[in-house]
Design a protein around this nucleic acid. Sequence first.
DNA 1: GGCGCTATGATGATGTATCAACAACCGGGT
DNA 2: ACCCGGTTGTTGATACATCATCATAGCGCC
Lengths: 154, 154
Amino acid sequence: MSEPRWLDEREARVWRSYVGLRLHLEAELERRLVRDGGLSNAEFTLLVPLSESPDGLLRARDLGRMVGWERSRISHQVARMEKRGLVAREECPEDARGSMVRLTESGREAIVAAAPSHVEAVRSLFFDAIADDELDVMAGAFERVLDRLPCDVG
Amino acid sequence: MSEPRWLDEREARVWRSYVGLRLHLEAELERRLVRDGGLSNAEFTLLVPLSESPDGLLRARDLGRMVGWERSRISHQVARMEKRGLVAREECPEDARGSMVRLTESGREAIVAAAPSHVEAVRSLFFDAIADDELDVMAGAFERVLDRLPCDVG
DNA sequence: GGCGCTATGATGATGTATCAACAACCGGGT
DNA sequence: ACCCGGTTGTTGATACATCATCATAGCGCC
């Protein structure tokens, strides 16, 4: 491997702040989610598409695609959430390999209770610090990075 | 809790792309780090300040502050890395509570081998997709978010 | 010295993420 | 009917992150 193209000062500044953001913003959002709604970030992530689905019912495969997770991750997380009573697993009628995930009443209550304060946290921690004309710059840049990723899902 | 200030369409676009970035970019960077250098992201994070320190020696407390980690996280991670032979723990001469972390020869070889391809990955996956005039916008925005975080470390 | 208070690390429990291996099933071709 | 490659989901191993708890050590104060 020959000498890499090192980061210059401006790039290093962006990278440092991005890494810090990833570290501290996510940690703080997760803390508030747990504190205000009793849900972890992973639980919240799965409950959102389930709650927006008819009958709160989704096939595990589709749920995985919606949130961009692999099979194993879905399986483990659903197992934990089933133990907590947030979702229930059922057999899939059309495909015997499949597995359906159903939102329980308890799960629906949890997401309804947690969503508002989570949105409020995202707004107050992130968007309240971002100027209007920076929004489109960031969205464009992020999307361009995502599009160039190898095993991209979108 | 009253109705929150929901995200409008532009904000939702930013948030979606940011979450996707965090998910996929970090995963891909980690995969390459493991593949090209045999180091995890957590290991790399600790090895960088150690390798830049005189004698590759740092007190656990200071190492934690440099990377923005809590005591427990440092302790667990150093324990794993000690088992792998990347670092060694020693007693702290000035403060009997303390614990010193020393980079081993094997650890130094690992970081020297891994750093160039990691920088190259960060550049090709992230910075090559970012325009020059977007750098300062992003750094400014990220730093503003970080400064407003409650339990901020910088 | 003795007493609190904080700082520092270690540890175990739990939750989360990834990987490899596995089992069961679908579809198509023969 | 049969095999075969690909899909789907589960499971166990390992690594990582956070929390609560604990033990010890410094530090100031009486």
